[in-house]
């Protein structure tokens, strides 16, 4: 794909976003609404730049909770997916537990977890993991199951053990599914980290937003939102890049 046609595809999105921001700017400046209620985007940007040191200092803990939480849930999703794939008993025992874990409302759980485990990094990692674990687990399980039965039969006829069939056929088959789950999870991860900080933290974007709101500074709340959105987009872009590098065969159709 040429970079020109790539640009062409991104153009509608750029125009839509630019239109939205300009409309917001025009309304905020022309309608006479107080900037302490709705600050224009230009003011948000300027304040973000002015407070960049503080914002950055609060971004680091959020990024830390996000990445550690995500790494923990990635590991857990892989380990449990393998256990569930190999044992019907474990599937029956664990899947309902995981599904119930997804019904827990974050808004109730986050403050409790902070109450039990304190303001440190640990409970935040746990909360991020809780939110991001399930989409990846489901994607992996679905990926394993979509393995071609004839391929498994072929490998067995060659004398492959069950574990060998898993490594040679089931795991690679699941990779495109896994990356789809990964993309869903990564968009939840930053939001989950911020939410857990909102419930109680010494530093982080979540607690920064809470303080800014309490000081009647919506411009600083939105500046922190801007940072968190950029963070999510960055991580999302990173997973897309990794996927392209890791799964070259999935894009062969495009080139032909």
């Amino acid at each position: 794909m040429s970079s020109l046609s790539r640009l062409g595809r991104a153009l509608p999105a750029v125009i839509a976003i630019a239109g939205l921001v300009l409309g917001w700017e025009a309304y905020a400046t022309l309608s006479g609404i107080s900037p302490t209620a709705l600050p224009p985007p230009s003011r948000v940007l300027m304040q973000a730049f002015e407070h960049r040191a503080v914002l950055w200092a609060n971004t680091l803990p959020t990024l830390q909770a996000t990445l550690f939480g995500f790494a923990a849930s990635l590991t857990a999703a892989f380990v449990f997916s393998v256990l569930i794939d190999f044992s019907l008993t474990l599937r029956r025992a664990l899947l309902p537990v995981f599904i119930i874990s997804q019904t827990l409302p974050m808004i109730a759980i986050a403050p409790l977890v902070v109450l039990w485990f304190g303001f440190g990094l640990g409970p935040k990692i746990g909360l991020v993991a809780l939110v991001t674990f399930f989409p990846m687990l489901v994607a992996l399980l679905q990926g394993y199951r979509s393995t071609e039965p004839e391929l498994e039969e072929l490998l067995s006829s060659m004398g492959a053990s069950r574990w060998r069939v898993f490594l040679t056929a089931r795991l690679p088959t699941s990779l495109p599914y896994f990356f789809a789950g990964l993309r869903v999870s990564i968009t939840y991860a930053v939001v989950a980290a911020i939410f857990s900080e909102y419930a109680g933290a010494a530093r982080g974007l979540g607690i920064y937003m809470l303080n800014a709101k309490n000081n009647f500074r919506p411009d600083l709340v939105l500046a922190a939102v801007l940072v968190s959105a950029s963070l999510t987009l960055l991580l999302f872009g990173l997973t897309v890049l990794i996927e392209r590098r890791a799964l070259p065969w999935t894009r062969l159709g495009e080139r032909r």
Binding site: L154, G159, R164, L175, L247, W249
Partner: peptide, 29 residues
């Protein structure tokens, strides 16, 4: 295991190059 089996669909693995697809039986051996 005296048989080499060719299934009805080719069952080539899309993520392996042709040489690695062809060699998979020897790897398993």
């Amino acid at each position: 295991r005296p048989f080499a089996f060719m299934p009805q669909r080719d069952a080539l693995m899309p993520w392996r190059t042709i040489i690695d697809n062809v060699a998979v039986g020897l790897e398993i051996a």
